[in-house]
Amino acid sequence: MNAVSSELLREVEQFLFHEARLLDERRFEEWLELFTEDTHYWMPIVSTRERGNREVATESELAYFDDTKETLRYRVKRLYTGLAWAEEPPSRTCRFLSNIQVEQNSDASLELSTRCNLMVYRTRLETDRDLFIGTREDVLRRVNDTWQVARRSITLTESVLDANNLSIFF
């Protein structure tokens, strides 16, 4: 793992902010284009365990999201049907990214690893309010002069989700 230049750091930050903005503005089709065809979009479950025991599920265990580009495409398509009632009327979201760290995977690599803290505030209908807070780790790949998400892993801090559903993206 290697540190990156401040220009690159800034570029990556701007990419992540742009992506978050697309979600907040519900531009889901544009958002989907930021993911590689072989992407893996994953949110493992988290359990309350004694100190020293593993809290985060492995890839063969249960997850809240375990998506490929194909299933993400279905999720996005669904939001434009007018029949996805959990998002009809749509949720209002506001995403905050902080503590962003970026590392080059190897000198010659076209891939970067990023880590950030993520806070997503969702309100919907009259008084439904959910706050999702966690850590997000991405692998970004350089594709045609821009970045794409080749892998995303989101770990929320909750072990019992205090929300009716996860009908938004992270």
Partner: peptide
Amino acid sequence: KQSIRQQYIFTFGPSGVFEQEDGENWSQ
């Protein structure tokens, strides 16, 4: 088994493209 696990997560559970709507109905 892995396919079953993924199908379940995609369609049911809190993010499931089927189950999302159910929770909304019952709370409303």
